[in-house]
């Protein structure tokens, strides 16, 4: 678990984002996208290829780096994040939600909330943005091989887990089982509905969809995610539980996991914090001695329990 906390990227052939002090002294720079190599503050300019309206408040942006070399060499580990920004407005941190194997574009899903996200929602295809990615540690998907994976996600939380879900689905044979419990307040509030429909077609995974309150035409479960989870009563045996969603959902999902017998080491979540630099310097995203931008955003519950109550 210690290695995880220290930001192992799971070895997914991702670029080496961490250098030792010796590497730096020897003049090595971080193998990040193109120009960023020497200057982690300099965003790579990318163009908006496509904008998908996911829900009334969430849009997905598919971007391509303007520098073809950068686009070609870009790789990341599932669960890693990036700083997506508009020059003149600012940057904010979002999970990379494209498939790790996707080479043609990089994708972020953005909920309209603040200054930057509002401006992002006003973008059109062809507009320019700045991207600094990848950042953070990602999920230890390699270490999970041979285990059953239980995803519990709600609302925009799906964006943080999308890449990981897609990765494990692509490498389905490596995992003993995959269960996805996905909740939303209303059927129109499911992000990636087009992909969810694809998942529904697969018979090698278990997919449970739930909405908070019943509504006409809805065929799947009804109920809050934690209560559906307890109804499902998945066995903790050889299982990794991963949750992400609104803070209140995470809070109760973690309680449910505990009830179901999941140990803190088996339970993972990914944190969200206000970030500025994204590279472990500017100081604001710390939870005790851990910086969410570099030590996280992925933490096991065991690691979180060690930290001050500042989530």
């Amino acid at each position: 678990m210690a290695a995880q906390g220290n930001g192992s990227n799971g070895g997914i052939g991702a670029a080496k984002t961490r250098l030792t002090r010796g590497d730096v002294a020897a003049g090595a720079t971080i193998a990040r996208a193109g120009k960023l190599a020497g200057n982690p503050y300099l965003p790579e300019v990318a163009t908006v290829l496509e904008i998908i309206d996911e829900t009334p408040t969430i849009k997905t942006f598919r971007l391509r780096f303007d520098d073809p070399e950068v686009q070609k060499n870009f790789s990341f580990a599932p669960g890693q994040v990036g700083q997506l920004g508009i020059f003149g407005v600012g940057e904010a941190t979002f999970a990379i939600s494209s498939k790790p194997s996707e080479k043609e574009f990089i994708q972020f899903s953005v909920m309209k909330a603040g200054e930057v996200t509002k401006a992002l929602h006003n973008l059109s295809v062809g507009d320019k943005v700045g991207v600094r990615a990848p950042m953070g540690n990602g999920f230890p998907v390699e270490a999970w091989k041979g285990k059953r994976i239980l995803y519990v996600l709600g609302g925009i939380g799906s964006a943080a887990l999308k890449a990981t879900i897609e990765y494990t689905l692509e490498h389905r044979a490596d995992y003993a089982g995959i269960t996805i419990l996905y909740g939303a307040t209303h059927p129109t509030n499911f992000t990636y509905w087009y992909d969810v429909k694809e998942w529904q077609k697969r018979d090698d995974i278990e997919l449970v969809l739930t909405i908070d309150r019943d509504c006409e035409g809805w065929q799947c479960d009804v109920g809050l995610v934690p209560s559906v989870l307890e109804r499902m009563a998945p066995s903790p045996e050889n299982t990794i539980a991963i949750t992400c969603g609104p803070p209140i959902m995470i809070k109760f999902a973690l309680i449910s996991f505990e009830k179901l017998g999941f140990t803190p080491e088996q339970t993972y979540t990914t944190l969200e914090k206000r970030m500025k630099c994204g590279i472990g310097i500017c100081g604001r995203c710390n939870v005790g001695p851990k910086y969410v931008c570099v030590d996280g955003p992925v933490f096991s519950l065991a690691e979180l329990k060690e930290l001050p109550d500042e989530l």
Partner: peptide, 14 residues
């Protein structure tokens, strides 16, 4: 130490 890069990760050029 801080600007030298977090554990040697990111080197702050400024």
């Amino acid at each position: 130490q801080v600007f030298g890069g977090y554990g040697g990760f990111y080197f702050d050029p400024l």
